[in-house]
């Protein structure tokens, strides 16, 4: 059962899914790092992205081309949500924001149920079942693309945060809001930008996921629980932690599924989650953003 011929392909498949988890977790950890809140609407916004990509595909747009639509669309959705709803309703209190994002996720999911019904949907693409021979394993093409694209996007995000004026302002606001105001940073704008960028990650993840996954009004739950685990595992607000944590969780899930059976695969994730909280509550990696 522990034959490397089976384990290796499973691990590689896990890595590909893990890269998408990492992308989702990067968005979550960015929002956490700057706004100091767990965004409970993260999963439902991913679901919105998946439906967006789904209907664009129905209209004839390939999911990978849909990236150029869905990434900006989710960015603006996130920006507007923070600017006009979350920021306004929270009155500066972090507990309030928590409830507002939770409320937003309930509203979004129920709207999806109402408009799209509870059906689980998938798309067919010409390349859905195309396999790429990586020498040690055959991997479906969409998974290879998702892996590569997620890593490229993570690199872009890293560059944005580490090397640009906007990134400097985001990191400044994350740690020292009053100091940020005193150098003339528009803190509300930076909050909305951070939320927007965190949500844009979901737009990207949605387009990469759709060819190899499904969409339903509750699809976000799968990812948000995993993303929470990744963020806690990697250290709240840590960029590299989210990236490595995502990959690690993907592999764990895949190997867990192989050893324990499909439905128990996610159990491994929560064992890691609990172990992390017990033995290393600050995560495996130091935090970078905050």
């Amino acid at each position: 059962m522990l034959d490397p011929i089976i384990l290796l392909p499973a691990a590689i498949n896990g890595l590909t899914m893990g890269a998408v988890y990492a992308l989702v977790a990067l968005g979550l950890t960015l929002i956490y790092g700057v706004l100091h809140i767990i965004n409970f609407a993260h999963g439902s916004l991913l679901m919105v992205g998946l439906y967006g990509a789904f209907f664009l595909h129905r209209a004839g747009l390939d999911p990978y081309l849909a990236l150029v639509v869905m990434v900006p669309a989710l960015f603006f959705t996130g920006y507007a949500l923070q600017w006009s709803v979350i920021g306004k309703a929270s009155h500066g209190s972090d507990q309030n924001i928590l409830l507002v994002t939770l409320g937003a996720s309930i509203v979004i999911e129920n709207l999806a149920l109402y408009f799209f019904s509870a059906d689980t949907r998938t798309i067919d693409t010409p390349y859905s079942f195309e396999m790429i021979d990586l020498g040690v394993a055959l991997v479906p093409l969409p998974r290879v693309i998702a892996f590569a694209a997620a890593l490229v996007l993570a690199a872009v995000l890293w560059f944005l945060i580490a090397r640009t004026d906007l990134g400097r302002a985001i990191r400044a606001v994350a740690k020292e809001r009053q100091g940020a105001r005193l150098v003339g940073i528009d803190v509300d704008h930076i909050f909305a930008m951070s939320f927007g960028i965190g949500t844009a990650c979901l737009g990207a993840a949605a387009c990469l996921l759709l060819p190899m996954f499904y969409v339903s009004p509750h699809v976000g739950h799968v990812f948000v629980l995993v993303a929470f685990t990744v963020v806690v595992l990697g250290g709240m607000g840590s960029f590299s932690g989210a990236l490595i944590g995502g990959l690690l969780i993907g592999v764990t899930e895949s190997l867990g599924g192989l050893l324990l059976g499909e439905s128990l695969g996610q159990m491994g994730i929560f064992l890691i989650f609990i172990a992390t909280l017990m033995f290393r509550p600050s995560g495996l990696f130091g935090s970078r953003l905050s």
Binding site: K175, G179, V183
Partner: peptide
């Protein structure tokens, strides 16, 4: 421009980045 009580520098940023942010708005 105010240099506030308690400094309020950005501890997670480098010295250079702190200074660069000084000219963020002006």
């Amino acid at each position: 421009v105010q240099v506030p009580e308690g400094r309020r520098i950005f501890p997670n940023l480098t010295v250079l980045e702190n200074l660069e942010l000084g000219s963020y708005r002006r």
